[in-house]
Design a protein around this nucleic acid. Structure first.
Length: 331
DNA sequence: AAAAAACTCAACCGCAGCGTC
DNA sequence: GGACGCTGCGGTTGAGTTTTT
């Protein structure tokens, strides 16, 4: 038997994507919406594996992706969510809608892992890292403790984790991704526009580098790194050549994407998300079901790990779904 | 200035889960 | 019930870039 490969190995292009390929991919998604990746290569003529197309879209071309340096807030969230969820990068990414799972994974592997290690070596618990320490302590201690003790420890750890998560989610930083979540939903258009701008800039950068002088900021890194990080000014802070020369491309690109048509064909993942009401009903239902003395740890675990709950995060304030203040017994 | 080492991150690979027939 | 196809996820790779020697 054996599984049929997702694409013919012969004639399938690999490696970095060219701007032309990006345009083909984006225009296809624009017309048909994300999904049906299997059909995409044949329909577009792209000599790419369907998987590769999906990955390119989700990790790079999808609207609303923020690239570049992670903020402290994001970093904290990643650390805490990683401690909570483990290497569930997709789940973690759902809390940081502007970041891709791949990005978060990379950031964790390249920066945070080391950071954590270093901190672990230096001293024990610092405010930020106590959660991780707590959880590692849990895994190391459970073999030697009784079941009852272990359950209490688990409960305490989950409580601690939840508290930490709450802190991360409710930090007052007005530019936090958490706060941006709502904006994202109400301003799909603007996000999309900025994404269009990003891709146009990418194209401009590519054209610039392939023709003549290359901006120091843009040149070395392949198309990939320029997208959102350089924003609308060059590295010296002055409007760069892209801004002037890029407009034609921008317009061309924007003509590819009617905003309202994008909204209607916006990503499947977004459209799959449940309404806040539905979630609340679910939670209530669960609460009622658990009225009969279900261990708190189980409830929390269910809540923390429940896919549905995770999926709705980008659209809903976690702290409004389960009020931390209303459930003081949890802490 | 050149070579080596370290780092970054886009992309690939294989597997698992889910839906359909 | 199971074979098959598709999609998504997490681990890994390797080319390109930056830093160090």
């Amino acid at each position: 038997m054996g599984r049929v490969p997702c694409c013919d190995k012969v004639g399938v292009k690999k490696g970095p994507w060219t701007p032309e390929e990006d345009i083909m991919l984006v225009s296809y998604v624009q017309q048909h919406g994300p999904g049906n990746w299997r059909a995409l290569p044949t329909k577009t003529g792209l000599r790419r594996c369907s998987k590769s197309c999906r990955l390119r879209w989700t990790n790079y071309l999808r609207p609303g992706i923020k690239r570049g340096n992670f903020t402290d807030q994001e970093e904290k969230m990643i650390i805490q969510l990683q401690a909570l969820l483990g290497n569930k990068w997709a789940a973690i990414a759902s809390y940081l809608p502007e970041r891709t799972d791949n990005d978060i994974k990379n950031y964790w592997n390249t920066h945070l892992k080391k950071k954590m290690k270093k901190l672990d070596q230096c001293h024990g618990s610092n405010d930020l890292f106590s959660l991780e320490n707590g959880l590692t302590h849990l895994s190391s201690s459970n073999s030697s403790t009784s079941r009852g003790q272990w359950e209490r420890t688990l409960q305490a750890d989950i409580n601690m984790a939840k508290k930490a998560l709450h802190n991360a989610l409710s930090l007052e930083n007005p530019t936090s991704s958490h706060n941006n979540i709502k904006q994202e939903n109400t301003q799909v258009s603007s996000i999309y526009a900025s994404s269009t701008e990003n891709i146009a800039r990418l194209l401009q950068g590519w054209m610039g580098s392939s023709t003549s002088s290359t901006n120091n900021c843009e040149s070395s890194k392949s198309s990939s790194n320029n997208i959102a990080t350089t924003d609308s000014s060059s590295c010296d802070g002055t409007p760069n050549a892209e801004t002037k020369g890029g407009m034609g491309l921008m317009e061309a690109f924007e003509s590819l994407f009617g905003l309202e048509s994008f909204e209607s064909s916006s990503s499947d993942e977004l459209s799959q998300t449940a309404t806040p009401e539905a979630i609340k009903i679910e939670i209530k239902k669960e609460e009622n079901e658990h009225d009969v003395e279900v261990p708190l740890s189980i409830i929390l675990e269910n809540w923390l790990l429940d896919e549905n709950t995770l999926n709705i995060q980008p659209k809903n304030d976690l702290t409004t779904l389960i009020s931390f203040d209303e459930t003081p017994q949890l802490f």
